[in-house]
Design a protein around this nucleic acid. Structure first.
Lengths: 332, 332
DNA sequence: TTGAAAGCGCTAACAT
DNA sequence: ATGTTAGCGCTTTCAA
């Protein structure tokens, strides 16, 4: 193994100087820096992480848990977190929890054994207590899910407000019978917030909610099933001209079900989602949705676990009004 | 931070003794061991991995790359590798490559930066040269893919033999027009081996191969498309009574396409796959397939990257003869 | 701007 | 069966 000392000898400088070059310490003459760099190159020197970690107390690795990696919203977000961390010279180790509390706990234990500098989580089943246990052991930041009263840093948009905005858009484009398609009360917080935003917005506009259809979970399959129920009700004469879905994936499933039932989106029923996943941009019709600033979420989450002070409380979002509610086709 | 020294003081023993207890060194009296364990418990001592790594030269982490995590064959295999590693006290960091050479390279770089004790790969796009570069930097074991002439340890079943066996089963159950459904020549090695096994078996039985249908890739969607082509040919009068698919996922897609075209599996066309993924056991009809000993693959892969001597050259497999070729329903 | 040297927490060779 | 001790490779304080 090539050590710093080898490099120092080769470059004819002291060890300290090599360290300075490696860590980017500014006061090194250009000449010396180049000599060191060349020696590093020639020797194929790679800093030993264990030694760095032992010395600095930082492992240079952060951990990330998501329900599902490489799929949908959390997949996209996960990639951004990995990117953001890499840009800061940090490695990211990812665990997939499938949203069950049990798996979330096992996976967290696995990750913690690696002694990461911090962990970013998107908990779906974890309790506030579980979380407190974790945050006693390492820096924690939460993405998406809020735990009211918990001191843990959470990075999220204002879910209720965003849901309200999209419902308002539906109302303003003339829809009068708007259903919410999501989970019931006993569900992750974000689902409840989006549902509440929907209810409050309807109330503001003096419109009665349509009897809710419950999705079992957040997959497109669940959306399809719920969408089929909706279509059946419509066939029986129920009043319905818009559906606000708790996530894009659910919305995409619902659109397919409506289409299969011979209904046109948005002509017969407008459909809106939430999260702005890539699939929604290429769906047919293109899906109207709430687009959170994912890159900013990733940035702040990484900053948060590194203990940097929070800059903004809330993440920005904007409405992506597309074909599935407006009927207007725009380039992706 | 609680150190070994703190524990030693608390337990009234030397540091060496604490180390002995932690690392499972045998010669510690029961009495002392318990005292140390209690002190560890009371103090909440956790060994510092960086220090361990610096001392031993091992990071206690292995890396794993798979095309897709948590899905299908590689997902199942990945979980087994993680389990096997955990049983040996090793952490596993996983990367998802999506099968492209480019991603495979970036992901490997990311993993290598973590300085793992070894990496287990399922390369799909990597060249033998790429691989040589990696294996110069760390211990490498390959799963599934063979690189002829490469010195890198490969854990795999005899793909050609297994493919031959399943084709023989098809022949022996009276099928005479057997198609291969997989990728073309320019494809990962395992695809070519399975294809070759199919051709050689047919030749042994004196049966001519049916004009091949090419699948773009290894997903169920690809299988569906290819299956649809097959169904169309059949409708035009082509002779066909069995399909051997390069993977279970392709087979599942193909079965759906055949079913959609009004064909009965296995009455009209028998379908066999390869890999024995869980979905195949619950497919309708249940899928006949080659079942490699996945747990043994995982075990040997982990052993290989740890530099343990190879015990067997080849992994065992067996045929799972199920409904999709036999027509006989058996419990899953 | 660079050198010398201490020490991060741990394991294992050596000694007892 | 247990204690003593020398580093593993690195960063960083102190001094020059």
């Amino acid at each position: 193994m090539v050590t710093q000392m080898d490099v120092a000898r080769r470059a004819g400088v002291g060890r300290r100087t090599v360290s300075n070059v490696v860590t980017g310490f500014p006061y090194v003459s250009k000449d010396v820096r180049e000599r060191v760099l060349r020696a590093i190159e020639e020797l194929g020197y790679v800093p030993n992480r264990a030694a760095q970690q032992l010395r600095t107390g930082r492992s240079g690795v952060i951990a990330l848990t998501v329900p599902e990696v490489g799929v949908g919203y959390f997949g996209e977000l996960g990639n951004l977190v990995v990117e953001e961390a890499a840009a800061r010279g940090l490695g990211t180790v990812v665990a997939q929890t499938r949203g069950s509390r049990e798996r979330e706990i096992t996976e967290i234990e696995r990750l913690l054994a690696l002694q990461p500098d911090g962990v970013i989580m998107s908990p779906l089943g974890l309790t506030a207590e579980d979380l407190a246990g974790v945050s006693a052991r390492t820096e924690v930041a939460l993405i998406g899910e809020h735990f009211v009263g918990s001191p843990i840093r959470t990075i999220a948009i204002d879910n209720a407000a965003a849901a309200g905005d999209i419902v308002t858009h539906l109302v303003q484009s003339g829809r009068e019978h708007i259903a919410f398609l999501g989970m019931s009360a006993a569900s992750p917080n974000f689902n409840q917030l989006r549902r509440r935003g929907y209810l409050e917005a309807l109330e503001r506009h003096g419109i009665a909610p349509v009897a809710a259809v419950e999705a079992r979970d957040f997959t497109s399959a669940d959306g399809y099933d719920a969408g089929a129920v909706l279509a059946a009700r419509l066939a029986e004469g129920a009043q319905l001209d818009a559906v606000f879905c708790v996530t894009d994936e659910v919305a995409i499933g619902a659109m397919r079900a409506l289409h299969d039932a011979g209904l046109r989106v948005p002509d017969d029923v407008a459909v809106a989602g939430f999260d702005d996943i890539v699939e929604g941009r290429y769906a047919n019709p293109r899906l109207t949705t709430v687009s959170p600033d994912k890159r900013e979420i990733a940035r702040q989450a990484v900053a948060a676990v590194l203990g940097e002070p929070a800059d903004d409380a809330q993440i920005a979002y904007r409405l992506e009004l597309r074909e599935s509610t407006t009927g207007i086709v725009q380039p992706a």
